[in-house]
């Protein structure tokens, strides 16, 4: 079975080790602003939530790409951007309803989580197991609707 990142915001302390590890893995620099995983801070609640691509089955980014620059890594299931094909048109950045594929001014291409080829550095760096790499089961759209449905009372998240 393929594996996926499992994020448990309840365990996140906001240490940003995941952002450091991700940016180092992908850009060679410790630069959280270029990390593909982001930790969001909720001051009101005193909470943190790491967030990145769920490698959803719908693959909105991949379907919207006009030049076949995003493909599935058959080993990991990750949707991977190929820099040699990406023209930087950004259509995927509006097609992804999770906001997890983004344009990089630095490279002129889009960037997203690629699961580090099967050894995600964010999970390796997380000291509290808020990010783990575990067996995958359900799909992104189910997840999007399910999470929208449970979000607040009487949510009407219908397809």
């Amino acid at each position: 079975m393929q594996k996926s990142l499992n994020i448990d915001p309840g365990k996140c302390t906001g240490c940003l080790q995941c952002e450091m590890a991700c940016s180092y893995e992908h850009t060679g620099t410790f630069n959280p602003s270029r990390s593909y995983i982001k930790v969001f801070t909720f001051h009101h609640e005193g909470r943190f939530a790491p967030y990145t691509c769920t490698q959803c089955d719908e693959a909105w980014c991949m379907r919207a790409c006009p030049v076949d620059a995003i493909t599935v890594d058959m080993a990991t299931g990750a949707k991977v951007v190929h820099d040699d094909k990406c023209v930087g048109c950004k259509v995927c950045t509006i097609a992804c309803p999770f906001g997890t594929i983004n344009y990089s001014q630095a490279t002129g291409k889009v960037v997203k989580c690629d699961l580090c080829g099967g050894d995600p550095q964010c999970a390796a760096a997380c000291p509290t197991d808020a990010i783990t790499y575990v067996d995958a089961d359900w799909t992104g759209y189910d997840r999007m609707l399910a999470s929208a449905a449970k979000s607040l009372p009487s949510a009407e998240a219908t397809a």
Binding site: I94, G99, A148
Partner: peptide, 19 residues
């Protein structure tokens, strides 16, 4: 703005109650 703009689609299309 170039970061996370896709989530605007997610917010709109999943009809999330923002509360």
């Amino acid at each position: 703005k170039t970061q996370h703009v896709g989530v605007l689609r997610g917010l709109i299309e999943s009809r999330i109650h923002l509360g």
